[in-house]
């Protein structure tokens, strides 16, 4: 018996999900209320930036994590009030649960106090990072 129905269902769902996936990766999503835990150097491994700190969570089976790390590391060299921290999600599962990190790469944007203002999942574009950082005062 030949049936095209399952194939059509998979393709339609796949295209819909794929379009959403492509559009949502890298997008900076601001939190409605900034009420998360306060992070500091003892947790993320680097001193907080005077204005913004970007904290990237990565894992082993993640191609875009490498590209994201290279991009953000490069960008902070030109932004003196912004710092970058890189965390291996697998060895920090408690923190991952506390901050509800679900996929990698996820980059948190912390304000000067070390509280999350928003986050981006997937590799952001340079312009998206600039816009996210500019929006945090």
């Amino acid at each position: 018996m030949n049936s095209w129905t399952p194939l059509l269902v998979v393709l339609v769902l796949g295209i819909a999900f794929g379009i959403w996936y492509t559009r949502s990766r890298g997008e900076f999503r601001r939190k409605k209320t900034v009420n998360g835990p306060k992070l500091d150097a003892s947790i993320i491994g680097v001193e907080l930036g005077s204005r913004v700190t970007m904290v990237q969570f990565s894992s082993a089976f993640c191609s875009p994590c490498r590209a994201t790390k290279a991009l953000l590391e490069d960008m902070v060299t030109k932004m003196p009030d912004v710092r970058y921290a890189h965390i291996d999600a697998e060895s920090h599962l408690e923190l991952v649960r506390q901050l509800d990190i679900r996929s990698t790469p996820t980059t948190l944007f912390l304000n000067a106090a070390g509280v999350e203002v928003g986050r981006a999942m997937g590799t952001p574009k340079r312009s998206q990072v600039i816009a996210a950082v500019e929006a945090i005062r």
Partner: peptide, 11 residues
Amino acid sequence: LGCEIYLLGLR
């Protein structure tokens, strides 16, 4: 795929 499901699996 690894980006989306590996961490969820670990968790």
